[in-house]
Design a protein around this nucleic acid. Structure first.
Lengths: 236, 236
DNA sequence: CTAACTAAACTGACCAGTCAGTTCAAATAG
DNA sequence: CTATTTGAACTGACTGGTCAGTTTAGTTAG
Protein backbone atom coordinates (compact mmCIF):
# COMPACT_ATOMS: atom_id res chain seq x y z
CA UNK A 1 0.00 0.00 0.00
CA UNK A 2 1.70 3.13 -1.15
CA UNK A 3 -0.51 5.76 0.40
CA UNK A 4 0.34 6.01 4.05
CA UNK A 5 -3.24 6.91 5.01
CA UNK A 6 -2.08 8.52 8.22
CA UNK A 7 -4.91 10.66 9.61
CA UNK A 8 -5.80 9.15 12.94
CA UNK A 9 -7.30 12.38 14.21
CA UNK A 10 -9.98 13.69 11.86
CA UNK A 11 -12.27 14.50 14.77
CA UNK A 12 -14.50 16.80 12.76
CA UNK A 13 -15.66 18.91 15.68
CA UNK A 14 -19.15 17.45 15.58
CA UNK A 15 -20.87 16.77 18.87
CA UNK A 16 -18.51 15.76 21.65
CA UNK A 17 -14.98 17.03 21.92
CA UNK A 18 -12.01 14.75 21.73
CA UNK A 19 -11.80 11.00 21.21
CA UNK A 20 -11.89 10.27 24.88
CA UNK A 21 -15.23 10.59 26.65
CA UNK A 22 -13.64 13.17 28.93
CA UNK A 23 -14.27 16.41 27.05
CA UNK A 24 -13.22 18.85 29.71
CA UNK A 25 -9.78 19.67 31.05
CA UNK A 26 -8.05 19.39 27.69
CA UNK A 27 -6.24 22.69 27.72
CA UNK A 28 -6.82 24.99 30.63
CA UNK A 29 -3.31 25.84 31.81
CA UNK A 30 -4.52 27.37 35.04
CA UNK A 31 -8.03 26.04 35.45
CA UNK A 32 -9.91 26.64 38.65
CA UNK A 33 -8.89 23.42 40.32
CA UNK A 34 -11.71 20.92 40.10
CA UNK A 35 -10.52 19.55 36.74
CA UNK A 36 -10.12 15.89 35.93
CA UNK A 37 -7.76 13.69 37.90
CA UNK A 38 -6.11 11.01 35.77
CA UNK A 39 -3.93 11.97 32.84
CA UNK A 40 -0.95 9.63 32.89
CA UNK A 41 -2.63 6.67 31.27
CA UNK A 42 -3.31 8.44 27.98
CA UNK A 43 -2.51 5.72 25.51
CA UNK A 44 -2.20 7.83 22.34
CA UNK A 45 0.53 9.65 24.20
CA UNK A 46 2.24 12.13 21.98
CA UNK A 47 -0.59 13.15 19.72
CA UNK A 48 -2.58 14.93 22.36
CA UNK A 49 0.44 16.80 23.61
CA UNK A 50 1.33 17.78 20.09
CA UNK A 51 -2.14 19.01 19.29
CA UNK A 52 -2.07 20.93 22.50
CA UNK A 53 1.11 22.70 21.56
CA UNK A 54 -0.21 23.39 18.11
CA UNK A 55 -3.33 24.93 19.62
CA UNK A 56 -1.33 27.15 21.88
CA UNK A 57 1.03 28.26 19.16
CA UNK A 58 -1.77 28.91 16.68
CA UNK A 59 -3.86 30.78 19.19
CA UNK A 60 -1.01 33.14 19.88
CA UNK A 61 0.08 33.76 16.32
CA UNK A 62 -3.34 33.92 14.73
CA UNK A 63 -4.61 36.22 17.43
CA UNK A 64 -1.78 38.59 16.71
CA UNK A 65 -1.69 38.64 12.96
CA UNK A 66 -4.92 37.07 11.81
CA UNK A 67 -5.72 33.72 10.30
CA UNK A 68 -4.62 34.71 6.83
CA UNK A 69 -1.52 36.44 8.10
CA UNK A 70 0.09 33.43 9.66
CA UNK A 71 1.77 30.63 7.76
CA UNK A 72 1.62 26.98 8.62
CA UNK A 73 5.40 26.96 8.78
CA UNK A 74 5.35 29.60 11.47
CA UNK A 75 2.81 27.70 13.51
CA UNK A 76 4.83 24.53 13.22
CA UNK A 77 8.01 26.31 14.23
CA UNK A 78 6.36 27.98 17.20
CA UNK A 79 4.97 24.66 18.37
CA UNK A 80 8.35 23.03 17.92
CA UNK A 81 7.17 20.48 15.38
CA UNK A 82 7.61 20.11 11.68
CA UNK A 83 5.18 21.30 9.08
CA UNK A 84 4.30 17.75 8.22
CA UNK A 85 3.09 17.17 11.75
CA UNK A 86 0.56 19.91 11.37
CA UNK A 87 -0.84 18.15 8.34
CA UNK A 88 -0.64 14.83 10.08
CA UNK A 89 -2.77 16.06 12.98
CA UNK A 90 -5.03 18.36 11.01
CA UNK A 91 -6.17 17.99 7.47
CA UNK A 92 -5.50 21.58 6.53
CA UNK A 93 -4.80 25.01 7.89
CA UNK A 94 -8.51 25.70 7.77
CA UNK A 95 -9.27 22.56 9.75
CA UNK A 96 -6.71 23.49 12.36
CA UNK A 97 -8.42 26.81 12.86
CA UNK A 98 -11.88 25.28 13.01
CA UNK A 99 -10.73 22.91 15.73
CA UNK A 100 -8.94 25.76 17.47
CA UNK A 101 -12.18 27.69 17.65
CA UNK A 102 -14.02 24.78 19.19
CA UNK A 103 -11.16 24.22 21.60
CA UNK A 104 -11.30 27.80 22.82
CA UNK A 105 -15.05 27.80 23.20
CA UNK A 106 -14.87 24.57 25.18
CA UNK A 107 -12.52 26.21 27.64
CA UNK A 108 -14.74 29.23 27.94
CA UNK A 109 -17.87 27.15 28.40
CA UNK A 110 -16.28 25.12 31.17
CA UNK A 111 -15.35 28.31 32.95
CA UNK A 112 -18.78 29.83 32.62
CA UNK A 113 -20.40 26.65 33.82
CA UNK A 114 -18.13 26.78 36.84
CA UNK A 115 -19.75 29.93 38.21
CA UNK A 116 -23.32 28.90 37.50
CA UNK A 117 -25.33 28.69 40.67
CA UNK A 118 -22.46 29.83 42.86
CA UNK A 119 -24.55 32.83 43.86
CA UNK A 120 -28.15 33.03 44.96
CA UNK A 121 -29.01 36.37 43.48
CA UNK A 122 -29.41 36.16 39.68
CA UNK A 123 -27.81 39.56 39.19
CA UNK A 124 -24.86 38.61 41.32
CA UNK A 125 -24.62 35.37 39.39
CA UNK A 126 -24.62 37.34 36.18
CA UNK A 127 -21.92 39.57 37.58
CA UNK A 128 -19.78 36.55 38.35
CA UNK A 129 -20.32 35.19 34.90
CA UNK A 130 -19.25 38.41 33.24
CA UNK A 131 -16.25 38.50 35.55
CA UNK A 132 -15.33 34.98 34.57
CA UNK A 133 -15.70 35.83 30.89
CA UNK A 134 -13.52 38.86 31.38
CA UNK A 135 -10.92 36.70 33.05
CA UNK A 136 -11.02 34.38 30.08
CA UNK A 137 -10.37 37.36 27.83
CA UNK A 138 -7.31 38.13 29.92
CA UNK A 139 -6.06 34.55 29.75
CA UNK A 140 -6.75 34.03 26.07
CA UNK A 141 -6.64 37.44 24.45
CA UNK A 142 -5.62 35.89 21.18
CA UNK A 143 -8.69 33.74 21.09
CA UNK A 144 -10.88 36.77 21.52
CA UNK A 145 -9.09 38.53 18.69
CA UNK A 146 -9.46 35.54 16.41
CA UNK A 147 -13.13 35.38 17.30
CA UNK A 148 -14.06 38.97 16.56
CA UNK A 149 -11.96 39.12 13.44
CA UNK A 150 -13.62 36.16 11.78
CA UNK A 151 -17.11 35.64 13.14
CA UNK A 152 -18.84 38.25 11.01
CA UNK A 153 -17.30 37.37 7.66
CA UNK A 154 -20.34 36.74 5.61
CA UNK A 155 -19.94 33.37 4.00
CA UNK A 156 -16.56 32.75 5.49
CA UNK A 157 -14.66 29.54 5.75
CA UNK A 158 -15.95 28.82 9.24
CA UNK A 159 -19.48 30.16 9.07
CA UNK A 160 -20.98 26.86 10.13
CA UNK A 161 -18.57 26.43 13.01
CA UNK A 162 -19.18 29.95 14.21
CA UNK A 163 -22.94 29.59 14.01
CA UNK A 164 -22.80 26.58 16.26
CA UNK A 165 -20.31 27.95 18.75
CA UNK A 166 -22.06 31.28 18.94
CA UNK A 167 -25.31 29.50 19.72
CA UNK A 168 -23.68 27.52 22.52
CA UNK A 169 -22.27 30.62 24.14
CA UNK A 170 -25.43 32.65 23.72
CA UNK A 171 -27.39 29.83 25.32
CA UNK A 172 -25.34 30.15 28.48
CA UNK A 173 -25.78 33.90 28.59
CA UNK A 174 -29.42 33.46 27.72
CA UNK A 175 -30.08 31.21 30.67
CA UNK A 176 -28.41 33.68 32.99
CA UNK A 177 -30.56 36.47 31.59
CA UNK A 178 -33.56 34.20 31.98
CA UNK A 179 -32.78 33.83 35.67
CA UNK A 180 -32.64 37.57 36.07
CA UNK A 181 -35.91 37.94 34.19
CA UNK A 182 -37.65 35.55 36.55
CA UNK A 183 -36.17 37.05 39.70
CA UNK A 184 -36.71 40.70 38.84
CA UNK A 185 -39.12 42.89 37.02
CA UNK A 186 -37.49 43.58 33.68
CA UNK A 187 -38.11 45.73 30.66
CA UNK A 188 -40.02 43.32 28.44
CA UNK A 189 -39.87 45.66 25.48
CA UNK A 190 -36.21 44.78 24.99
CA UNK A 191 -35.81 41.85 22.61
CA UNK A 192 -34.07 39.05 24.47
CA UNK A 193 -31.88 38.07 21.53
CA UNK A 194 -30.58 41.58 20.92
CA UNK A 195 -29.88 41.96 24.59
CA UNK A 196 -27.83 38.78 24.72
CA UNK A 197 -25.91 39.86 21.65
CA UNK A 198 -25.22 43.20 23.28
CA UNK A 199 -23.94 41.58 26.47
CA UNK A 200 -21.83 39.08 24.61
CA UNK A 201 -20.44 41.69 22.30
CA UNK A 202 -19.76 44.14 25.07
CA UNK A 203 -17.76 41.52 26.97
CA UNK A 204 -15.50 40.88 24.02
CA UNK A 205 -15.12 44.46 22.98
CA UNK A 206 -14.63 45.93 26.41
CA UNK A 207 -12.14 43.20 27.23
CA UNK A 208 -10.14 43.66 24.06
CA UNK A 209 -10.33 47.39 24.26
CA UNK A 210 -8.91 47.42 27.73
CA UNK A 211 -6.04 45.15 26.78
CA UNK A 212 -5.19 47.08 23.66
CA UNK A 213 -5.79 50.69 24.50
CA UNK A 214 -6.30 50.99 28.25
CA UNK A 215 -4.37 48.35 30.14
CA UNK A 216 -4.48 50.51 33.25
CA UNK A 217 -8.18 49.95 33.66
CA UNK A 218 -9.14 47.19 36.06
CA UNK A 219 -11.15 44.13 35.25
CA UNK A 220 -13.74 45.26 37.76
CA UNK A 221 -14.29 48.46 35.82
CA UNK A 222 -14.86 46.47 32.68
CA UNK A 223 -17.26 44.12 34.40
CA UNK A 224 -19.16 47.07 35.85
CA UNK A 225 -19.44 48.69 32.44
CA UNK A 226 -20.87 45.52 30.93
CA UNK A 227 -23.20 44.98 33.86
CA UNK A 228 -24.65 48.41 33.22
CA UNK A 229 -26.63 46.69 30.50
CA UNK A 230 -28.26 44.43 33.06
CA UNK A 231 -28.98 47.29 35.39
CA UNK A 232 -30.77 49.02 32.57
CA UNK A 233 -32.71 45.87 31.84
CA UNK A 234 -34.21 45.44 35.30
CA UNK A 235 -36.86 47.90 36.37
CA UNK A 236 -36.13 49.51 39.69
CA UNK B 1 16.98 58.20 -8.20
CA UNK B 2 15.22 55.78 -10.50
CA UNK B 3 11.98 55.61 -8.57
CA UNK B 4 9.25 57.36 -10.49
CA UNK B 5 7.89 59.09 -7.42
CA UNK B 6 4.32 59.17 -8.73
CA UNK B 7 2.18 59.54 -5.63
CA UNK B 8 0.25 62.75 -5.97
CA UNK B 9 -2.10 61.68 -3.20
CA UNK B 10 -0.13 60.77 -0.09
CA UNK B 11 -2.64 62.56 2.13
CA UNK B 12 -1.34 61.00 5.30
CA UNK B 13 -4.59 61.11 7.20
CA UNK B 14 -3.49 63.92 9.48
CA UNK B 15 -5.97 66.48 10.72
CA UNK B 16 -8.58 67.53 8.18
CA UNK B 17 -10.09 65.10 5.71
CA UNK B 18 -9.64 65.51 1.98
CA UNK B 19 -7.74 68.12 0.04
CA UNK B 20 -10.79 70.29 -0.44
CA UNK B 21 -12.09 72.22 2.54
CA UNK B 22 -15.43 70.47 2.01
CA UNK B 23 -14.97 67.29 4.02
CA UNK B 24 -18.56 66.09 3.90
CA UNK B 25 -20.53 64.45 1.11
CA UNK B 26 -17.64 62.50 -0.31
CA UNK B 27 -19.14 59.06 -0.42
CA UNK B 28 -22.62 58.55 0.90
CA UNK B 29 -24.43 56.72 -1.88
CA UNK B 30 -27.86 57.10 -0.36
CA UNK B 31 -27.45 59.79 2.26
CA UNK B 32 -30.39 61.25 4.08
CA UNK B 33 -31.20 63.79 1.41
CA UNK B 34 -29.58 67.09 2.24
CA UNK B 35 -26.27 66.12 0.62
CA UNK B 36 -24.22 68.46 -1.54
CA UNK B 37 -25.40 69.60 -4.93
CA UNK B 38 -22.53 70.34 -7.29
CA UNK B 39 -20.02 67.72 -8.31
CA UNK B 40 -19.07 68.60 -11.89
CA UNK B 41 -16.57 71.30 -11.08
CA UNK B 42 -14.12 69.07 -9.26
CA UNK B 43 -10.80 70.52 -10.25
CA UNK B 44 -8.62 67.47 -9.63
CA UNK B 45 -11.04 65.86 -12.01
CA UNK B 46 -10.78 62.16 -12.36
CA UNK B 47 -8.66 61.41 -9.36
CA UNK B 48 -11.38 61.93 -6.82
CA UNK B 49 -13.84 59.81 -8.74
CA UNK B 50 -11.28 57.08 -9.14
CA UNK B 51 -10.34 57.11 -5.49
CA UNK B 52 -13.98 57.01 -4.65
CA UNK B 53 -14.52 53.89 -6.71
CA UNK B 54 -11.44 52.30 -5.24
CA UNK B 55 -12.72 53.04 -1.76
CA UNK B 56 -16.07 51.50 -2.51
CA UNK B 57 -14.60 48.41 -4.12
CA UNK B 58 -12.05 47.88 -1.35
CA UNK B 59 -14.59 48.42 1.38
CA UNK B 60 -16.78 45.71 -0.08
CA UNK B 61 -14.09 43.15 -0.79
CA UNK B 62 -12.04 43.68 2.34
CA UNK B 63 -15.12 43.62 4.51
CA UNK B 64 -16.04 40.25 3.09
CA UNK B 65 -12.73 38.48 3.03
CA UNK B 66 -10.39 40.50 5.19
CA UNK B 67 -7.52 42.79 4.33
CA UNK B 68 -5.09 39.97 3.80
CA UNK B 69 -7.57 37.91 1.83
CA UNK B 70 -8.03 40.38 -0.99
CA UNK B 71 -5.53 41.07 -3.76
CA UNK B 72 -4.76 44.41 -5.31
CA UNK B 73 -5.68 42.97 -8.69
CA UNK B 74 -9.15 42.12 -7.43
CA UNK B 75 -9.67 45.57 -6.00
CA UNK B 76 -8.59 47.19 -9.23
CA UNK B 77 -10.89 44.95 -11.28
CA UNK B 78 -13.84 45.58 -8.98
CA UNK B 79 -13.30 49.33 -9.23
CA UNK B 80 -12.97 49.09 -12.99
CA UNK B 81 -9.48 50.52 -13.09
CA UNK B 82 -6.09 49.04 -13.80
CA UNK B 83 -3.72 47.85 -11.18
CA UNK B 84 -1.32 50.62 -12.07
CA UNK B 85 -3.97 53.16 -11.14
CA UNK B 86 -4.12 51.77 -7.64
CA UNK B 87 -0.42 52.34 -7.25
CA UNK B 88 -0.67 55.72 -8.91
CA UNK B 89 -3.29 56.88 -6.38
CA UNK B 90 -2.00 55.05 -3.37
CA UNK B 91 1.53 54.11 -2.59
CA UNK B 92 0.73 50.61 -1.47
CA UNK B 93 -2.04 48.26 -0.51
CA UNK B 94 -1.40 49.14 3.10
CA UNK B 95 -1.73 52.84 2.37
CA UNK B 96 -4.96 52.27 0.51
CA UNK B 97 -6.40 50.55 3.54
CA UNK B 98 -5.20 53.22 5.93
CA UNK B 99 -6.90 55.88 3.84
CA UNK B 100 -9.96 53.70 3.54
CA UNK B 101 -10.25 53.59 7.31
CA UNK B 102 -10.07 57.34 7.59
CA UNK B 103 -12.56 57.73 4.79
CA UNK B 104 -15.08 55.49 6.56
CA UNK B 105 -14.64 57.23 9.87
CA UNK B 106 -15.10 60.60 8.22
CA UNK B 107 -18.44 59.47 6.86
CA UNK B 108 -19.50 58.16 10.23
CA UNK B 109 -18.40 61.30 12.04
CA UNK B 110 -20.36 63.51 9.69
CA UNK B 111 -23.44 61.46 10.28
CA UNK B 112 -23.06 61.51 14.03
CA UNK B 113 -22.48 65.25 14.00
CA UNK B 114 -25.69 65.60 12.00
CA UNK B 115 -27.86 64.43 14.88
CA UNK B 116 -26.07 66.40 17.56
CA UNK B 117 -28.40 68.84 19.23
CA UNK B 118 -31.39 67.77 17.18
CA UNK B 119 -33.08 66.73 20.41
CA UNK B 120 -33.39 68.59 23.69
CA UNK B 121 -33.27 65.64 26.01
CA UNK B 122 -29.74 64.22 26.32
CA UNK B 123 -31.05 60.67 26.46
CA UNK B 124 -33.15 61.16 23.38
CA UNK B 125 -30.16 62.73 21.69
CA UNK B 126 -28.13 59.69 22.64
CA UNK B 127 -30.83 57.47 21.25
CA UNK B 128 -30.70 59.31 17.94
CA UNK B 129 -26.98 59.00 17.84
CA UNK B 130 -27.07 55.28 18.40
CA UNK B 131 -29.75 55.00 15.75
CA UNK B 132 -27.62 56.95 13.32
CA UNK B 133 -24.64 54.74 14.08
CA UNK B 134 -26.77 51.68 13.53
CA UNK B 135 -27.89 53.07 10.20
CA UNK B 136 -24.27 53.58 9.28
CA UNK B 137 -23.66 49.91 10.08
CA UNK B 138 -26.45 49.02 7.68
CA UNK B 139 -25.10 51.24 4.94
CA UNK B 140 -21.48 50.22 5.34
CA UNK B 141 -21.45 46.74 6.83
CA UNK B 142 -18.12 46.04 5.23
CA UNK B 143 -16.52 48.96 6.97
CA UNK B 144 -17.71 47.66 10.31
CA UNK B 145 -16.28 44.25 9.55
CA UNK B 146 -12.96 45.70 8.50
CA UNK B 147 -12.92 47.76 11.68
CA UNK B 148 -13.56 44.98 14.17
CA UNK B 149 -11.29 42.56 12.40
CA UNK B 150 -8.26 44.83 12.51
CA UNK B 151 -8.54 47.29 15.37
CA UNK B 152 -7.35 44.97 18.13
CA UNK B 153 -4.34 43.48 16.35
CA UNK B 154 -1.64 44.30 18.80
CA UNK B 155 1.10 46.02 16.91
CA UNK B 156 -0.62 45.77 13.59
CA UNK B 157 0.06 47.65 10.39
CA UNK B 158 -2.47 50.34 11.20
CA UNK B 159 -2.14 50.67 14.95
CA UNK B 160 -1.42 54.35 14.77
CA UNK B 161 -4.30 55.04 12.41
CA UNK B 162 -6.69 53.08 14.57
CA UNK B 163 -5.61 54.79 17.75
CA UNK B 164 -6.36 58.16 16.23
CA UNK B 165 -9.65 57.23 14.62
CA UNK B 166 -10.83 55.41 17.70
CA UNK B 167 -10.14 58.50 19.78
CA UNK B 168 -12.13 60.69 17.41
CA UNK B 169 -15.15 58.42 17.54
CA UNK B 170 -14.94 57.93 21.28
CA UNK B 171 -14.79 61.68 21.73
CA UNK B 172 -18.15 62.08 20.03
CA UNK B 173 -19.71 59.35 22.14
CA UNK B 174 -18.02 60.81 25.18
CA UNK B 175 -19.55 64.21 24.70
CA UNK B 176 -22.99 62.65 24.35
CA UNK B 177 -22.44 60.70 27.54
CA UNK B 178 -21.25 63.90 29.15
CA UNK B 179 -24.52 65.59 28.26
CA UNK B 180 -26.45 62.77 29.85
CA UNK B 181 -24.28 62.97 32.94
CA UNK B 182 -25.02 66.66 33.35
CA UNK B 183 -28.73 66.32 32.68
CA UNK B 184 -29.37 63.31 34.86
CA UNK B 185 -28.16 61.73 38.04
CA UNK B 186 -25.83 58.97 36.96
CA UNK B 187 -23.92 56.14 38.53
CA UNK B 188 -20.56 57.78 39.14
CA UNK B 189 -18.92 54.50 40.09
CA UNK B 190 -18.89 53.47 36.44
CA UNK B 191 -15.66 54.50 34.75
CA UNK B 192 -16.50 56.82 31.90
CA UNK B 193 -13.94 55.32 29.56
CA UNK B 194 -15.10 51.76 30.01
CA UNK B 195 -18.67 52.87 29.54
CA UNK B 196 -17.88 54.58 26.27
CA UNK B 197 -16.02 51.52 25.07
CA UNK B 198 -18.99 49.36 25.99
CA UNK B 199 -21.39 51.58 24.07
CA UNK B 200 -19.15 51.83 21.07
CA UNK B 201 -18.48 48.12 21.06
CA UNK B 202 -22.10 47.20 21.56
CA UNK B 203 -23.09 49.30 18.58
CA UNK B 204 -20.69 47.51 16.29
CA UNK B 205 -21.33 44.06 17.63
CA UNK B 206 -25.09 44.30 17.82
CA UNK B 207 -25.18 45.80 14.36
CA UNK B 208 -22.98 43.16 12.82
CA UNK B 209 -24.65 40.39 14.69
CA UNK B 210 -28.04 41.39 13.42
CA UNK B 211 -26.86 41.54 9.82
CA UNK B 212 -25.07 38.24 10.00
CA UNK B 213 -27.18 36.03 12.20
CA UNK B 214 -30.50 37.75 12.76
CA UNK B 215 -31.49 39.90 9.79
CA UNK B 216 -35.12 39.67 10.88
CA UNK B 217 -34.49 41.86 13.90
CA UNK B 218 -35.27 45.53 13.45
CA UNK B 219 -32.88 48.38 13.82
CA UNK B 220 -35.04 49.72 16.62
CA UNK B 221 -34.54 46.54 18.60
CA UNK B 222 -30.80 46.88 18.22
CA UNK B 223 -30.87 50.50 19.24
CA UNK B 224 -32.98 49.65 22.28
CA UNK B 225 -30.57 46.92 23.31
CA UNK B 226 -27.62 49.31 23.14
CA UNK B 227 -29.52 52.04 24.92
CA UNK B 228 -30.08 49.66 27.81
CA UNK B 229 -26.53 50.57 28.77
CA UNK B 230 -27.51 54.20 29.16
CA UNK B 231 -30.63 53.33 31.10
CA UNK B 232 -28.48 51.40 33.51
CA UNK B 233 -26.13 54.35 33.78
CA UNK B 234 -28.70 56.90 34.87
CA UNK B 235 -30.14 56.57 38.34
CA UNK B 236 -33.91 56.56 38.41
C1' DC C 1 0.15 70.06 -22.73
C1' DT C 2 0.19 67.15 -19.09
C1' DA C 3 -1.94 64.74 -15.17
C1' DA C 4 -4.39 60.65 -14.92
C1' DC C 5 -4.84 56.37 -16.42
C1' DT C 6 -4.13 51.76 -19.18
C1' DA C 7 -2.34 47.28 -20.31
C1' DA C 8 0.73 43.84 -19.95
C1' DA C 9 4.78 41.79 -18.76
C1' DC C 10 7.97 40.87 -15.12
C1' DT C 11 10.38 39.91 -10.43
C1' DG C 12 11.13 38.03 -6.32
C1' DA C 13 9.28 36.44 -2.30
C1' DC C 14 6.24 33.60 -0.06
C1' DC C 15 3.24 29.76 0.98
C1' DA C 16 -0.30 25.66 1.29
C1' DG C 17 -0.07 21.23 0.70
C1' DT C 18 2.58 16.70 -0.55
C1' DC C 19 5.35 12.74 0.02
C1' DA C 20 9.24 9.59 0.52
C1' DG C 21 11.74 8.61 4.21
C1' DT C 22 13.00 8.39 9.55
C1' DT C 23 12.19 7.59 14.51
C1' DC C 24 10.72 5.15 18.34
C1' DA C 25 7.68 2.91 21.70
C1' DA C 26 5.09 -0.90 22.24
C1' DA C 27 3.75 -5.52 20.70
C1' DT C 28 5.24 -10.06 19.52
C1' DA C 29 8.50 -13.80 18.89
C1' DG C 30 12.16 -16.62 20.14
C1' DC D 1 15.43 -11.31 28.67
C1' DT D 2 16.78 -10.05 23.85
C1' DA D 3 15.63 -9.66 18.88
C1' DT D 4 12.41 -8.40 15.49
C1' DT D 5 8.44 -6.30 13.71
C1' DT D 6 4.92 -2.97 13.29
C1' DG D 7 2.83 1.31 12.58
C1' DA D 8 1.63 5.73 14.46
C1' DA D 9 4.00 10.00 14.79
C1' DC D 10 6.93 12.91 12.81
C1' DT D 11 10.34 15.12 9.37
C1' DG D 12 11.72 18.55 5.90
C1' DA D 13 12.81 19.19 1.08
C1' DC D 14 10.10 20.04 -2.78
C1' DT D 15 6.22 21.60 -5.97
C1' DG D 16 3.07 24.44 -8.14
C1' DG D 17 0.95 28.43 -7.63
C1' DT D 18 -0.07 33.18 -5.93
C1' DC D 19 0.68 37.84 -5.06
C1' DA D 20 2.60 42.71 -3.95
C1' DG D 21 4.88 45.74 -6.16
C1' DT D 22 7.55 47.57 -10.50
C1' DT D 23 8.27 49.08 -15.03
C1' DT D 24 7.41 50.78 -19.51
C1' DA D 25 5.37 52.49 -23.52
C1' DG D 26 1.26 54.21 -24.92
C1' DT D 27 -3.71 56.44 -24.47
C1' DT D 28 -7.23 59.65 -22.79
C1' DA D 29 -9.29 63.67 -21.20
C1' DG D 30 -9.44 68.22 -18.82
Amino acid sequence: MSTTEPAPAESGAAAAGTTEPAPAESAAPAASGAAAAGEKKLRPGRTNATKQRLFEASMELIGERGAAGVTVDEIAAAAGVSKGTVYYNFGSKSDLIAQLLRHGVDIMLVRLQDVRGKANDPLESMNNMVGQAMEFMDDYPSFARLWVSEIWRTPGEWSAVFAELRAELLAVIGSAVESVASGYKVNESIARGSLEAAIFGAIFVVGLDRQTYNPERTREQSVAAVMTIMHGYVIK
